[in-house]
């Protein structure tokens, strides 16, 4: 079978589909002071997965606000800098109008994913952390 570290080099998704891969990638991002990119990406996935069942509304609203506050609100934060202004306004609108939709972070997640695919992921594959592991 293909060793995990070779699968991680196939695509960002194969890396993010493996616990050890995520752990190593996060260590690298932390070193580069941008681990928030990865945390935000997973937070968006987790938010989408949260059941829209009745009684969960308060939790979803609280979580949407928490994600917005931590990653999007501060324009100087690493995640916020990689999200388009229109996408940020859209999320802000959703939060302000209490219009909480499972897909409200989807566009922002896509933009952060593109940033990782074009930037941090290729750097990770050339990093000491990855090469030593491999």
């Amino acid at each position: 079978p293909t060793p995990p570290y070779l699968r991680w080099a196939e695509s960002l998704h194969s890396l993010l589909d493996d616990q050890d891969g995520i752990h190593l990638f996060r260590m690298f991002l932390k070193q580069e002071a941008c681990a928030d990119l990865l945390d935000f990406w997973f937070a968006c996935s987790g938010f989408r997965k949260l059941e829209t069942a009745e009684g969960n509304d308060e939790k979803r609203l609280k979580l949407a606000k928490a994600i917005y506050k931590k990653y999007v609100l501060d324009n100087n934060a690493i995640v916020s800098r990689q999200i388009k202004p229109a996408t940020k306004s859209f999320i802000k609108d959703c939060v302000m109008k209490l219009h909480i939709d499972p897909a409200m972070f989807d566009q922002a997640q896509t933009e952060i994913q593109t940033t990782m695919e074009e930037n941090t992921y290729p750097l990770f594959l050339k990093s000491d952390i990855y090469l030593k592991h491999a």
Binding site: Q19, I22, F42, A43, G46, K49, L50, K70
Partner: peptide, 20 residues
Amino acid sequence: IDSEDDLLQECISSAMPKKK
């Protein structure tokens, strides 16, 4: 603040793949 962070952490963990 703490409970917000806990909620975020729980959310992030829920999206991670389970150990194979």
